[in-house]
Computed example of a mutant assay.
Amino acid sequence: MLQLPFINFLKNSQVTWIIQDFASYWLPSAAAQLGVNTVYFSIVNATTCSFFGSPADLINGRFQKAEDLTMVPQWINFNSNIKFKLHDIMRGQQECKDSVSDLYRYGTVLKDCRAVIVRSCPEFEPEAFTVFSKLLQKPVLPVSLLPPSMQDYTVADSKWQVLKDWLDTKKERSVVYVALGTLLTLSQELMHELAYGLEKSGFPFIWVINKRPLVEGKMGSDLVPHGFEDRVSGQGLIWMDWAPQLRILAHSSVGGFLTHSGWSSVIEALGLGRPLIMLTGGSDTGLVARMMHRRVGLEIERDDKDGSFTSERVAKSIRQVLVEKEGEPLRANAWAMRETFGNMELRNKYLEEFNRFIENNTAANRSI
């Protein structure tokens, strides 16, 4: 329903470039007929982009069955374990109800757009940028990891003060921050396993639980075991409200982030040097978790088919990442990642290069 009114708008506008996502797959070709260039902005990294192959692979339905997505593609010519697990795919299929698949939309946009910009940089994944550029045969430009700036981060002072006062009482790098984003939906049984795992770990934790119904008919406190909050009152803080994630991660008492593995959350954590304990939450998060596993954190071991896990596995992963000897290189690597993931100079450099690309190509178009 957006297509016709938007094209009519373009006909009477001075727009020369459009930066878009994958959903409006009809836009690049329609805009090109009006002399307007489109740039696809990938909010995920180049390794994830490379996994799905060329535009032709996506449009022609190379991935016909779930098992096709559970293998590292042959065109990934660098050392990588990036692939989906069946439980990642099954969740995605249940959520997708559109007559036009996301992969078809994505492939069509990649085929018809003028250029692609990626929320990542070669300093982090040089081989992936090379592969993705070869697959597309068009400009692929990094715009850095776009780390958020604390100075630009607004927060309700009263809410942050409560959290800060609690964090101030804890030892340095001892707290597990738990936030599963908006994509990850766990059954009540698995929510309880997660709760028991946090308790068994013995580490203090802040657990952000959204008020949205994660399980049908269940809200908020219904998702944790009966009596859990009282039992862990000296160990953990259950926070059923919006949380200032960046400020929490920046606090010196936070030692690790139990995350759904969303790319934005990973960027925030590694920009501050925090190692990861990972659960996947649909979309690209399984690929992100495979890429980061045993590099800057650990993915909690789960059943490949149904995604189930035990409280013991949760507790074990937390202990390994936060304090055990096995986690020393993970903690060191995560701390070192600040130089790339939190680098504002790198961000400014790549944004300036993208700006020059737009200016140069706009000038070229006008001269033709």
Rank of each mutant, 00 (worst) to 15 (best):
P73L: 08
D68M: 05
Y177P: 07
W75Q: 01
S42R: 06
A66N: 05
S187C: 05
P139L: 03
T169G: 04
L186I: 02
F132C: 02
L86R: 12
V131F: 07
M150E: 11
L183T: 06
Y104I: 02
V131G: 05
G92Y: 00
V100K: 03
L69V: 01
Y104H: 09
T182E: 08
S120P: 06
Q188K: 15
V109I: 15
E172D: 13
P139M: 05
D168I: 10
A179K: 03
Q64S: 11
T108K: 15
E95P: 00
V118I: 15
S101G: 06
K159A: 13
V143H: 06
K97V: 04
P139H: 09
Q188W: 02
T169V: 14
N79G: 02
R62H: 10
D152C: 04
A128W: 07
G181S: 11
C113W: 02
F41E: 07
Y104S: 02
F51R: 02
T185G: 03
A128K: 08
F132P: 06
V72Y: 01
K164F: 11
P73G: 12
Q93R: 15
Q94H: 12
K65M: 05
C96R: 13
C49E: 13
V155T: 15
G61A: 09
S54D: 04
G107Y: 06
D157S: 14
S50A: 14
L110G: 04
D165I: 11
V162K: 14
C121A: 15
P147Y: 10
S54M: 06
C49G: 08
L186A: 02
A115C: 13
K134I: 01
S42W: 09
K97E: 05
P122N: 12
G53P: 05
G92D: 15
V109G: 14
T185P: 00
A128I: 07
